[in-house]
């Protein structure tokens, strides 16, 4: 598949997962859901964990259930979804931390290398490379963070 596989859980896939859950009545068995969607277990768990961190699903026992917030994002239009994701990202420790780092810089910019090294120190239990990719992709989607591949710089998206 040309655009995939992704090494981070993309927002479009998370929204797709919520849509599937809504169609099955809001609740599914995790293992069966993975089988139905032809998702490898690791891939499914990564996606579910991401959706859970955003507050869109809960995982009681071996089940997965859509939350009210998860239902809410499905009802929103394209830019309404972005706005809701932005609000959610601002509650996540990794986004709060990285935004604080950037705000302390004069031009609100840090090199990718610096951010990855600091992530490794601050969140040693996480895969820093994956966290960085998620930061860039979710951050761009929510218009919170910008990234220049040419300069390898991460910066605060001021909307200009």
């Amino acid at each position: 598949m040309e655009g995939d596989p992704e090494h981070y859980p993309g927002i479009s896939r998370i929204v797709g997962l919520l849509k599937v859950l809504e169609e099955t009545g809001g609740l599914a068995e995790l293992y069966q859901l993975g089988v139905d969607l032809h998702l490898e277990l690791g891939e499914e768990l990564q996606l579910v964990r991401a959706a859970e961190s955003l507050g869109f699903v809960q995982t009681p026992g071996s089940d997965i259930a859509i939350t009210d917030l998860g239902k809410e994002i499905l009802k929103k239009d394209i830019n309404g979804r972005k706005k809701l994701i932005r609000e959610r990202l601002l509650t996540l420790p990794v986004f709060q931390t990285v935004l604080t780092w950037l705000e302390h810089e004069e031009d609100a910019t840090l090199s990718a290398e610096t951010v990855k090294n600091r992530l490794l120190e601050q969140f040693p239990q996480e895969d820093a490379e994956m966290s960085f990719q998620t930061l860039v992709n979710w951050g761009r989607y929510a218009e919170l963070l910008g990234y220049s591949a040419d300069r390898e710089d991460l910066y605060v998206d001021r909307g200009d």
């Binding site: 598949m1 040309e2 655009g3 995939d4 993309g10 479009s12 896939r13 998370i14 929204v15 797709g16 997962l17 849509k19 599937v20 969607l37 032809h38 996606l47 394209i78």
Partner: peptide, 13 residues
């Protein structure tokens, strides 16, 4: 050329 979950989202959009 998209995975199944992304497809669901893009059709909607």
């Amino acid at each position: 050329n998209l995975d199944a979950l992304t497809t669901l989202t893009l059709r909607d959009e």
